[in-house]
Computed example of a mutant assay.
Amino acid sequence: MLEIRNLHVNYGNVEALHGINLSVQKGEIVTILGANGAGKSTTLNAICGLVKATKGEILFNGEPLHTQRAHTIVSKGIAQSPEGRRVFSTLTVAENMMLGAFTIKDKALISKNEDWIYDLFPRLAERRDQLAGTLSGGEQQMLAIGRALMANPRILLLDEPSLGLAPILVKSIFDTVRTINSHGVTVVLVEQNARAALKLANRGYVMEVGNIVLEDKAASLLNNPDIQKAYLGGGH
């Protein structure tokens, strides 16, 4: 469904991605693990068109994305919930949600998606008229995911959804990601919480300084001693 071939990305003179290859099949949850600065967010931003590829290809169902602009990529069915949530704090929950739907012309579809998201996140429904800036961190994370889902994506890119959240909220966010996936949305998950991400995902990629150093089924990565040592705090 999504294929990245030999992708290079530069920030000025610095190369952030050194020719990575990555693929995502329809219906999967794929996680990308790695330390800060490994290139995980850059990879998601390149898929979205927020940063440009200096070399290589990004294909979505065989169609090149790396030559397209960000808003076109959203309308093709790829949406991101960014790191740091990035909600519009002076707008209400409902207004933030509507901004997510800006590429959709079908009013019935917008309404159907909105109902589904308020079902997924009842807390957002209760607070739909509240300013997003007054929400808790967990509620803002729900809103960031909800806003991305309003674009009716076939692939949802999640960048650090559990960052800064209490453990009980992390579990709830991950449960919701599983539900979203069961509704036919393919998920690419960048996550510091490696254990939770690998328990959720089908497959995982491990990045180090702009390279993919390992790719395997999520269960195999969970049991890999090197991964346990580097990302899971030792053994079981």
Rank of each mutant, 00 (worst) to 15 (best):
M1K: 06
M1H: 09
H8D: 10
V9A: 05
A16E: 01
Q25Y: 15
E28H: 00
T31I: 06
G34R: 06
A35I: 04
N36P: 02
G37D: 00
K40Q: 01
T43V: 03
L44K: 02
I47M: 02
I47K: 05
V51R: 09
A53V: 02
I58E: 01
A70R: 08
I73E: 04
K76Q: 09
I78E: 02
Q80M: 08
S81R: 07
G84Q: 08
R86E: 11
A94V: 12
E95L: 09
A101C: 04
A125W: 14
L131T: 08
S136C: 05
G137E: 02
A144N: 03
N152V: 13
L157V: 04
E160V: 00
L163S: 14
A166L: 09
P167Q: 11
F174G: 00
D175V: 04
D175G: 03
T176Q: 15
N181Y: 07
V185Y: 08
V190A: 00
E191D: 06
A196R: 10
K199M: 13
A201N: 05
A201W: 11
E208Q: 13
V209C: 15
G210Y: 08
N211W: 12
D216I: 06
S220V: 14
N223T: 04
N223G: 05
P225H: 11
I227D: 02
Y231M: 01
